[in-house]
Design a protein around this nucleic acid. Sequence first.
DNA 1: ACCAGTTGCACAAACGTTTGTTCAGGTGTG
DNA 2: CACACCTGAACAAACGTTTGTGCAACTGGT
Lengths: 325, 325
Amino acid sequence: MSTVSRVLNGAAAQRVSDETRARILEAAKALDYRPNALARGLRAQRHFSLGIVVPQLDNPVFSSAILGAEAAASALGYSLIISHREPGRAADGEYSRLTSTHRVDGLLVASLDEDRGLIGALEATGVPFVLMNRRIDAAPAVALDSEAAARIGTDHLLDLGHRRIAHLAGRPEGFNGQARLAGYRNALEARGLPFDPSLVEPAGYTVDGGYQGTTALLAKAAPRPTAILAATVVSAAGGLVALHEAGIAVPGQMSMVAIHDAPIAAMVYPPLTTVRTPTEEMGGQAVRLLDRLIGGELATSPALLAPTGLVLRRSTAEPSSSPRA
Amino acid sequence: MSTVSRVLNGAAAQRVSDETRARILEAAKALDYRPNALARGLRAQRHFSLGIVVPQLDNPVFSSAILGAEAAASALGYSLIISHREPGRAADGEYSRLTSTHRVDGLLVASLDEDRGLIGALEATGVPFVLMNRRIDAAPAVALDSEAAARIGTDHLLDLGHRRIAHLAGRPEGFNGQARLAGYRNALEARGLPFDPSLVEPAGYTVDGGYQGTTALLAKAAPRPTAILAATVVSAAGGLVALHEAGIAVPGQMSMVAIHDAPIAAMVYPPLTTVRTPTEEMGGQAVRLLDRLIGGELATSPALLAPTGLVLRRSTAEPSSSPRA
DNA sequence: ACCAGTTGCACAAACGTTTGTTCAGGTGTG
DNA sequence: CACACCTGAACAAACGTTTGTGCAACTGGT
């Protein structure tokens, strides 16, 4: 029995004759033997399950990340326990259910509370973790290069000739929101254009936020901008609705470019030009990093994941009449 | 120690003095004691985890169902292990990983292989299961009343005065596809209108399918229909794109109504009139039914979940010129 | 031919619970 | 007052693995 265990897990071919090994493997196959993960976990403190906690299950960015994580987890033999964390709720209970009672081997977290407190709570659990889609201090994380994404989007608008570009921003207190705002600003300043705070409106990552934010932008920014960089495709969709209602033609009177090339980008009208980001890859890398951490490696976080291109659809065009700069 | 166990699980207040019980509960709280689910599962053959297998993680209908399932699972103390099952792949390996090695207490399945074989494979695992979003024979299931949903959508178009209504259908071999087609047909026939197969085009549940299907419909159906009932909001979004490209105004020249009131319904242009379906509720009910099954009850499946209303947006209107009936 | 060293396997403890059973002490009955 | 009965708690086995250790049977050197 112990020999069987050694053969099946056999890291270093530990002192088992080839013949015995072969017999065991054959028998295991014949009986379709599956080790009981519970028993194994109880004894070995390891049972191949990962917890993943996300703030919005229905946000396409997270759907995609989960998809990538699930694929990688499955490939490495892990099961994925999903936990939907309501934006406002206290985190502690959530983590302890996963770590104390369910004893996951590791935690993938995309919480919205992006502060030191999160890191403290996670470290208190004692299990390895990796942050997904955000970065806090030096904690292990896999995130997107949001600054670059915003820069690419803004550059596209600048290349088309736009000079008055607004930014439908993310959460000003979040990692991605800040990075995107910085990318927007950097792209502008690289061409010697001023950064105008009145052209920035935080809108979060929901349809409704995008709608409200765009409405606010139209009300306060005068003269009206000729283009908008949206922090995410979801808020862009909301923004599009607001523009339609205001009777502003896209891209005739207003161009719009959004970050994240989710399926909905092709579903709205007009189809949105977007900056493609490797969200699925992010999920996969997060799982692989976590696996290394669990294995005891002091894995270093990879660099930020770079955007993978601009997807031209039909929401951007040259500014209509007044080439004002 | 045994007494502690009895107190903490204590189904029927088994022979434990009130004083002892109080002391135990107090100590448990003071120590923040969390039973180890692995050990419990090993001994008691029950460890409060459920497997959920879905075909498309990024389909809003499933996102929503998962959301509902997660909430209910969490409320009942279960963890949810998610498994993304590629539409084409063989199922067996998937289920055995969940049941044999991970030993989930039950399975929630929304597979796309809706045949007897599925039931056989599931029964072979020996763990309780419930079908989600589909029904096969008498197997425990929680599904939507797709026939009613299609009827409501079609009735709305009929009420507006449309007489030539096409159906962008689902999968003809699937439970929902068939039920929606039946609802469409029944609504038509209830008003004495003929059912015309040339007005029906299968389009599946993807954006691209909706685009292709709508294009096919426009090519083959003459005279052109004045309205379309889409089997799902996702294919409707694709259909809208095809209509825009064909230069057909919505709702001016073509009305469109879709089943499922997902967030994207409000994001496309024009915002889609939809039939609201309780998808989140479906996930929750599925979990609660599964819980009862696990508890040994021979729970009967509830009736199909009825649609919860028509959501009027701006994709439907009276037919423009020719009130032809 | 003896002994040390090595090899290959089996033994048994341990992981943290649940649950059937035993057992001491108290209670009621004849 | 003795006996049977009940109550409440402790004992111990079991769940299916992993892993440290023991122990034969070989191997090779002297």
